[in-house]
Design a protein around this nucleic acid. Structure first.
Lengths: 183, 183
DNA sequence: CGACGCAGTGCAACTAGTTGCATAAGACGG
DNA sequence: CCGTCTTATGCAACTAGTTGCACTGCGTCG
């Protein structure tokens, strides 16, 4: 249940419409908290009812009208409360680990091809993060405040992707050595 | 939607009751695919209806009767199919990353204390995995087949936990340097 | 002019997961 | 003897997330 708070953080950084929020989730926040536009719209509606966010309809020329959301005082207080609240450890679900655990019951070459495909996808995402790191945070040692926070979140993504790529390489090497491709 | 297949893998390894499956999820499979006993029971029911698994009631002395599940032919075929099926990249949700992103809107010392607490919890889990690695896989180079697969899954957990601990250390060091504790 | 994409919003039905509780049999300790 | 724990099973109501679709306004392209 962090979607509300991810939305509050984003709107505190900058007010915006549901559509703009969805775009931010696609490009930035969604790397560490994924949400569909539908979920965002529904959650925004509930947050308006809770008075956590304010909503202003804005007429537009040549485009559909839009609703611009901002954080209300109750939302600000709720965000402060949540930021200090202890949370449970993240629950993990990794379907590739399930597949590797069950590899001997299936077609191992096909599974290895699938793992290689995931490895390449994660390597690509790692490349994206590296480019962002170089472009936006060329000198991490001098970062402070909000920029430092954004950088540290990017670092989580980089570490996670690197860890996955390394793991996939280990899996491919070991299972290929085990004869996984000639059965 | 991999719970069905995690259950199929576990029952292929060894038949068992819903209660036994829940214990296996608590101690082993749950490290990479978490599920509550209630979810397992409900899913088993549906899998019996699909004829993916067989179900035999076993009377017991001094204990409640139990239902023992095994994999049926349809389940075996479904598992083979799923193991070869391409899957979507894992969707990520990390509430601590959301908190770090929003740190400047809250109580930074309290957040740092929370991060330290998570760091210690993950370091403990990493220790548990290291002990399992030493005990069960002292010589990884000679592993083959199913034992190799189990080892590689454990390696995913080790890498993930190590990555998290390293990230938490980076976050704590950088935010403390940024004066996070004297505000 | 119709299809598609971007800029906008949102309903409904569904799946996946969680929580809380309930039941029963036996062992054990206070 | 009562409370707690282990061994067993499972209902119901809920939240979180997904899917598919629908609608509007405008620009572009074939």
């Amino acid at each position: 249940m962090a979607l509300e708070h991810a939305i509050l953080v984003s709107l505190e950084e900058r007010s915006g419409s549901g559509y703009e929020l969805a775009r931010r989730f696609d490009k930035s926040i969604g790397f560490f908290w994924a949400a569909s536009h539908q979920q965002i719209y529904r959650t925004l509606k509930r947050m308006v009812q809770l008075e956590w966010v304010t909503c202003t309809e804005v007429a537009q020329d040549g485009r559909p009208d839009k609703k611009v959301y901002g954080v209300g005082e109750a939302g600000r207080a709720e965000l402060r409360r949540w930021l200090a609240e202890p949370s449970d450890p993240t629950v993990l679900r990794n379907d590739l680990a399930v597949k590797i655990r069950g590899a001997s019951f299936g077609d191992i070459p096909a599974l290895l091809a699938e793992i290689a495909r995931h490895r390449d996808a994660h390597a690509e995402r790692l490349d994206v993060y590296r480019v962002i790191e170089k472009r936006d945070f060329p000198d991490p040692a001098v970062l402070t405040g909000r920029h430092l926070h954004q950088y540290l979140v990017l670092r989580a993504g980089i570490r996670a992707e690197q860890g996955l790529v390394d793991w996939f390489d280990e899996v491919l090497e070991a299972m290929r050595r085990d004869g996984g491709e000639d059965r």
